[in-house]
Structures are given as structure tokens and as C-alpha cells.
Computed example of a mutant assay.
Amino acid sequence: MNSKAYSVRKLQEVSEVPGIYAWYLLYNQKIDLQAYHSVYKQRQLFSFLKGNLQDNYQGTLSAQPYLFDKPVQDLNLLAGAIDVFSPPIYIGVSNNLKRRLLTHITMLNHILYADHVEDIVDIIESDIDSDKESKHFAQRISSVIKGINGIGLNSFRVKVIELAPGYSSTMLVEVENFLNRTFIPYYGRR
């Protein structure tokens, strides 16, 4: 088992072996803090409430933007802290890490810089480790970050755990499911 972190420019160096990977969104000083903050927030919640006289209330709640009380003074420290402490935005597994990550980046590049955004594709269990799953991730993250100044392909870092060839797909998916349920990456499978 070997763990590494890669910038998007270095994904060609990932080995063609089974493994687990996670995507992270880095911060740089060109990105508006409010916009960066919004990437990690739930867009809408569905609520069902019961009143004291058994009246039922339900509906969709929309997030209200948080306005920072005062600007962060040390943006270098903030960028470093985000790099160390930010949660993954996506966790996945693949029987061929290099192929999967290069497919993700190709889809991200295509969708992020396209003139229009297609409807987000639905995926099912059989779509795991497929081009359709890569497109799903690319569409979900692109729909949020497209148009945020300072965020582009170079804003991502990918961490991987490379495993020995022939590692069990079933065991990979078990670990992926645990990681997704535990860390709940915002742009992972739903």
C-alpha cells in the first residue's frame, strides 16, 4: 500500500493499479472567500416538521450565504490550513487509478470550460469505476465552481492509495462505501 498526493498536472504519474482516491479543492488568494465557502455548503434541504397541534409542514429550505464579520488577514496561513484540514469533495475507487483519474480530469476539463452545462447524469451501482461516474462527478462540481474566479483545474489535488495489482474490487467498494458514509464528500455519489 502506497499513498501519494498529486496536483492535476502530475496525474500522468499515477500508477495503473487498483486503489482509492480522493479529490480536494485548494484555496488561493485569487478566489473570493465567500465563493470558496459556498462550495462546501448544502444548497437546499428538504424539511418536514410537525406542529404542536399535529399540523404538518414541509418544504425546501435554501441556504442563506454566510457573510464574514471581517476579512481574514493572513491568507497564506488560511491557504495552508485549508490544504491540511479540508475535507475531500469526492472519494472513489478504481481497478486502474491512472485511467480513472485521467478520465475524471478529461471530463472536468470538457465540462468546466464548455459553453453550456448538460443535465447531471444519474448513476446506478453498475456505473462504479466508469466514464459515466466520472462525468457525474465532473458535472456536479463544475455546476458549482464554474464562474468562480480563481478556481480552475489547477485548484484540485488528488490523494491516492495505490494497491497491488489484482486487489479485490469488492473490498475496494466496501472501503469506499465506509469512507463516503463517514466523510460525506459533497460531490460524491448520492
Rank of each mutant, 00 (worst) to 15 (best):
N2S: 06
S3E: 12
A5L: 11
Y6D: 07
R9L: 10
L11Q: 06
L11A: 05
Q12Y: 09
V14S: 12
S15T: 07
S15I: 03
P18E: 11
I20K: 10
Y24T: 08
Q29L: 00
I31G: 00
I31R: 02
D32Q: 10
A35F: 08
S38D: 14
V39N: 00
Y40C: 01
Q42A: 02
L45I: 02
F46C: 05
F48L: 04
N52C: 12
Q54E: 13
S62C: 05
A63I: 00
Y66A: 02
F68L: 11
D69E: 14
L78W: 07
A79H: 05
A81P: 00
A81C: 04
I91A: 03
G92Q: 06
S94H: 13
N95S: 13
R99T: 09
M107D: 02
I111T: 06
L112S: 00
L112A: 04
Y113R: 07
D115V: 09
H116N: 08
D119H: 13
D119E: 14
D122C: 03
I124Y: 05
S126R: 08
S126C: 09
D127F: 04
D129S: 03
S134Y: 05
K135Q: 05
S142I: 08
S143H: 09
I145V: 10
N149S: 13
L153N: 13
K159V: 04
E162R: 07
E162W: 01
T170I: 13
V173Q: 13
V173T: 15
V175T: 15
N177L: 13
T182S: 12
F183C: 09
P185A: 14
P185M: 14
Y187I: 09
